[in-house]
Design a protein around this nucleic acid. Sequence first.
DNA 1: TCATGATATGGGCAAATGCTCAAATCTAAT
DNA 2: ATTAGATTTGAGCATTTGCCCATATCATGA
Lengths: 322, 322
Amino acid sequence: MQLKPQGLSEESEVSPRDMAARAAWLSFVGGLTQDQIAQQLGISRQRAQRLVARASAEGLIRVRIEHPIAACLDLERALKARFGLEQARVSPALAAGSDPLLGLAPFVAPELERIFEAEGPKVFALGTGRTLKTVVEHLRTVEGAHHKLVSLIGNVAPDGSASFYEVIMRFAEKTRARHYPMSAPVSARDDVELALYRSLPHVKASRALAKSADLAIVGIGQLGDDAPLYVDGFLTAGELTDLRTAGGVGEICGHIFDRDGRYLDHPVNHRMVGVQVPEGRMPVYCVGAGASKVPALRAALQGRLLAGLFTDEETARELISK
Amino acid sequence: MQLKPQGLSEESEVSPRDMAARAAWLSFVGGLTQDQIAQQLGISRQRAQRLVARASAEGLIRVRIEHPIAACLDLERALKARFGLEQARVSPALAAGSDPLLGLAPFVAPELERIFEAEGPKVFALGTGRTLKTVVEHLRTVEGAHHKLVSLIGNVAPDGSASFYEVIMRFAEKTRARHYPMSAPVSARDDVELALYRSLPHVKASRALAKSADLAIVGIGQLGDDAPLYVDGFLTAGELTDLRTAGGVGEICGHIFDRDGRYLDHPVNHRMVGVQVPEGRMPVYCVGAGASKVPALRAALQGRLLAGLFTDEETARELISK
DNA sequence: TCATGATATGGGCAAATGCTCAAATCTAAT
DNA sequence: ATTAGATTTGAGCATTTGCCCATATCATGA
């Protein structure tokens, strides 16, 4: 019978994660075979293999390709020229059928780190959505206590459930930045309610801070039958049809715009508690890729809503092709 | 007979490196098998394998383990406490017999990038040597045009050959930082020559800039029979013996110190054209690992010459073990 | 035009890897 | 103490990968 040693020697406190990290280090950096790793760590070959697999699965390993692929650089240049962007980054294509985020997220994360690590205190305004959430999951922890993060959009769904894609909290966790979520519903039900929400001090403060942001980072949504706004219950089927009839093709932070990137003059837009970007002088950087998002992206670019774009090769090609 | 298309279509200009990078991206980020990669790129399986191998060989791939191994964190804490360091980083051990730089260099490079990316314009003073050279080779290109790099040590060997380990030039290449090598011999032959070199305007300027540096980054040398200073011809066999008799155990930027980290009062030290660190208030960060360097490192730490240390697990363990 | 050396290509095979399954071990609740 | 359930372990095997070698292609100079 063995008792677990309780802090007796600092040596013996080895978490399974540590082992996984160590095995991964030996494998990827050291280039050892699994047999050698097993030998080195005094474990079986299978265990070594499992540790390495686990490290990969848990995202302990970050791979970065140092060489900018010429084709992607070309696309970046083309995007900048065509749409007057100050920033454009294009990730190389992965397998045709796969989720665009598979490649985009690990590509964008270091770019964001870079932006975040730069210079003095900044205010970053954040959108939400699956795209941004996935990107933020790929961020490494980076010191940023001098920055502020503020949400561009409410965090309460119509059914009252909070935090549908809590981008800002996860981001703040990784950076220790001060964060200001917009603790209010995404959308009000009528003008009275809207006025009420917007008069709440913390909402007022968040909106003011967001408007003064140095950079907004947002995703983009499409208005097809599987529009995220509809799927997540922010729009009824009727509203969705109505918006499409009115010319809506895409949406940023829940604000719907037409094919020229002009925000619709529609009740749905008027009831949003959050901020309609760009507000003031803030540059808006958008992350998004995938065939379904092309019309929305094209519209947003056309209407000069965006100052920066992170996308993948296939999407970029589509965007400049017409 | 086919003529090579000359910029006809931007599409067909694909460098082999691009292909390698793309294959590597598909393999590491996308997790595709070589067969799938081959299919995707329309090439044979063998070619795909060769491309991935090539990408690895050419260093296009940077792997980073996200999880700080607890054992290494413990060692870092111990080093900081024991030797009053402001910074200490310990890389996980690789195979016992292998070159310590194999693991240390890819570990230190991102740390350096981090330091370099931080805040406003800074002056970085650099040493030389195989260790620093290898680390700098692992740096990714990072914008740093607002920084200045200055060499702590002359760049001309006794035989007149320039640049024995041109750390500063390679560093500057990657960062576009302004750089000030010390274009002078490492060591003068007598006091008159020393005075002469030191009176040269560009040497004077470099030395002054180096002394005002915000951070010095140096390697460390040992004084065994294979002392780098001796192997590279900066010391004669006689001088080496003499220095060891006088108590010399290690050297930073060619300045020799004893086991308590006190610089020797010896002609060899007095004839160095470069700067003897630390000068003024500059913190000195040292990169170094390996059994042979332990005595030198211990001495430098003992004498509080260093404010920061980057080393590997094995060396760290040695350093705090006694 | 042809010869010559250098480089690239694909076949084949041994080593390394990933995965499944059954046995073993551990955990926790009775 | 016992047992049911969950997790971990190692053997076996199919797949994938790395590498050598014979052949083909390309570039270069006579």
